[in-house]
Design a protein around this nucleic acid. Structure first.
Lengths: 174, 174
DNA sequence: GGCATATGCTTAGTGTACGAACCATCCGCC
DNA sequence: GGCGGATGGTTCGTACACTAAGCATATGCC
């Protein structure tokens, strides 16, 4: 998934006669993972006073939006694996921010709900988005463009995954 | 780091008083991490025949660009932690794709070089970018826009981190 | 009722990520 | 020639992320 070596002049390595499709700095997937790790990293000092990691922050965001959520509902909202969330939520429980209990109507379902502390933490979290926007120094247009593009990308991934599931073998279309 | 709810958002970045500034689906950091995970996920079936994980693929890309690289050089190219790369490179060595050896001129330095198998793998990897672009169905304009935005974001993260390091305390700037 | 299947969650195993502590080698410099 | 700090890697502990397997409850269908 490299970008085309279009008009702009690339930086370091290439300069070769033929455009190298495998040049590291042209891989969009590379830039994407580096940016993602970097942004999560930038959240760290801001979330640390709240006692939250970035994935934990996302779980709290979901719960602040709607408090009793089953693990599966949480998993769908966050697009995360239940196997990942299960221990993560346990750590939030150990931190006193959420409770975990079986739903009476269906004993398989695990209801995850905010504690008073967890709900109260929202007040302190209100400052996080502004702080991050200020730290990263991105203007609203860039943020919006970023959000649109990420949403597009997520849609593309979804479609690719669907196609993958529809054709595990390689029989021709139709 | 939420996006504004409308085009005529408040002039300042001050979104904290918006009731749903913490709405999950407005968090750019959420979209970013989901997109990143999703794209890496989409690479999985394509890289699996090559026997590579996505981070391993990035290491191979770097080595295909320049073969003997020290761990530190690799770390800088990939913007990854040496502590992360160290075991990762060992797994590549176990797979027979690279060799690890101390540099004669400086016994501290670990030279990581392609084996014949590792170099040969590049031929098969040449198809990866095209396959991925096709799978995700993104046009060149989107890819380029994505790359530009990710690069901008990485730059923003770098500046934020620098500022963080320059002011570990909280004395006002200047 | 009772069994096969589906659903919801958990656990185990592997592979990143990252901070922190550790060790070895190198370098400047007296 | 030897000491102190800097540099390059490794290891450890914790936390995700994901696949696969396991377990319990629920549901459909006879």
């Amino acid at each position: 998934m490299p970008i085309p070596s279009a008009a702009h002049a690339p930086s370091a390595i290439e300069l070769a006669d033929e455009p190298d499709a495998l040049a590291l700095e042209r891989q969009v997937c590379f830039a994407l993972t580096v940016a993602s790790r970097g942004v999560v990293q930038a959240y760290r000092p801001v979330l640390e006073p709240l006692g939250l990691s970035h994935p934990q922050y996302l779980v709290m965001l979901a719960l602040w939006g709607s408090s009793p959520l089953s693990l599966t509902e949480l998993s769908r909202s966050l697009r995360a694996d239940p196997a990942t969330l299960s221990p993560l939520v346990k750590r939030l429980e150990a931190a006193g921010l959420v409770t975990r209990g079986r739903r009476a109507a269906d004993e398989r379902t695990l209801d995850i709900a905010l504690t008073a502390d967890g709900a109260a933490l929202r007040e302190r979290a209100l400052a996080v988005p502004g702080t991050m926007a200020e730290r990263l120094g991105l203007d609203l247009a860039q943020l919006e463009q970023l959000h649109v593009l990420m949403t597009t990308l997520i849609g593309a991934v979804d479609r690719a995954q669907e196609a993958q599931h529809r054709e595990p073998g390689e029989h021709p279309g139709e």
